[in-house]
Design a protein around this nucleic acid. Structure first.
Lengths: 186, 186
DNA sequence: TATAATTTTCAGAAATTTCTGAAACTATAA
DNA sequence: TTATAGTTTCAGAAATTTCTGAAAATTATA
């Protein structure tokens, strides 16, 4: 499996970016290669294209599966395991957001919950810190709820929302008026 | 500077999470310490609290400044440099989003732009890859525009939007109708 | 200007992460 | 069964990142 120059340059770039996205170089390269390949690939093809060890490919495939970014496939009459991208680019972006939330926000959110609950020390140095902890907690909770909401939205509505751009501001005005109207009645 | 047990546990946690957020352990700890401290801190206080080398503190402060998360301050009659959080938790979250976009999305976006422009090979293996590259490019561009829009929104409107939650769906329906109405006229 | 206080730099040490490749393991076919 | 094809594991090697601490640079004061 020899890569075309274009695919190779993309694979190398995704490798470099990998660490910023939460995985290592090889995993980044593997993801790019699989996403850009029309046909599913097996471990040996990946090994040959990227010129890394067989063990490394195996670990990388596990990592990408834990991110739910690739999908196992079997070809009739072939014992090898083949892998392809798990859904559209859009699906994968959604998955990445969700996984990152789990890894980057959830652990902190639970810690903060406990810290707000447990600690009732109202002496000065703690008082200020507790206020900030509450602020951080509320922010993370809002982000979590918001991202859950976006997950729930249909792709079409999500697209409408994204493409709204500057329109968001106007739409929010309408929504504010609407809310105030309901509040007056209730 | 001795930390209280609550602050210490938060500092250690932020240290562990640091690598997932794009900086190293010491930088994560320093950020937590500065954010949770009411008064600005100087390098020696940080060094003592975290028990790390002076050089490490200096490098960490530079890193946090490059993220625009801390602010230099001078106290009257004191030559030392003191550092405090650069704004509210909300401001800092905004800054982190923006910085991460710059580091995680922008470089890829420019590479993809070039790849779409430069390469006009329509032979099979490239054809499919080019389609996917275009999809990725469009997605990243949408995310970039959307995040720029959120930056531009006032904190109040941003809050309205975040707190809308399930209401977003209804608001989008209204917006759709509104758009269709305008289109009919224009 | 010289001196003292403070911060920054950076070479090498320490710690951590990633990678290799051979052995162990698993599943299918003969 | 036994042989064969394929995958996973993991100890140690290699690469990378982080950290230290002393020297250099910078800044303020006498």
């Amino acid at each position: 499996m020899k890569m075309t120059p274009m695919i190779e340059s993309l694979v190398l770039h995704f490798g470099e970016m990998g660490s910023r996205w939460g995985f290592n170089r090889t995993v980044g390269q593997m993801l790019a290669l699989i996403v850009l390949s029309e046909d599913a690939l097996n471990a040996d093809q990946i090994r040959e294209a990227l010129n890394v060890s067989r063990g490394n490919v195996s670990m990388g495939l596990k990592e990408l599966q834990s991110w739910r970014l690739i999908q196992l496939r079997h070809l009739p009459g072939d014992r090898k395991e083949y892998y392809a991208a798990a859904g559209s680019i859009w699906d994968m972006a959604n998955t990445v957001f969700e996984e990152r939330r789990k890894r980057e926000i959830d652990p902190t959110l639970s810690l903060l919950r406990n810290n707000i609950m447990d600690d009732t020390n109202e002496a000065p140095p703690e008082r200020y810190a507790r206020e900030r902890v509450t602020e951080i907690h509320d922010l993370l909770e809002t982000i979590t709820q918001w991202s859950a909401e976006l997950q729930r939205l249909s792709p079409e509505k999500l697209n409408t929302l994204m493409r709204l751009g500057a329109g968001v501001s106007k739409v929010l005005d309408i929504s504010e008026k609407f809310k105030r109207g309901s509040a007056d009645k209730g």
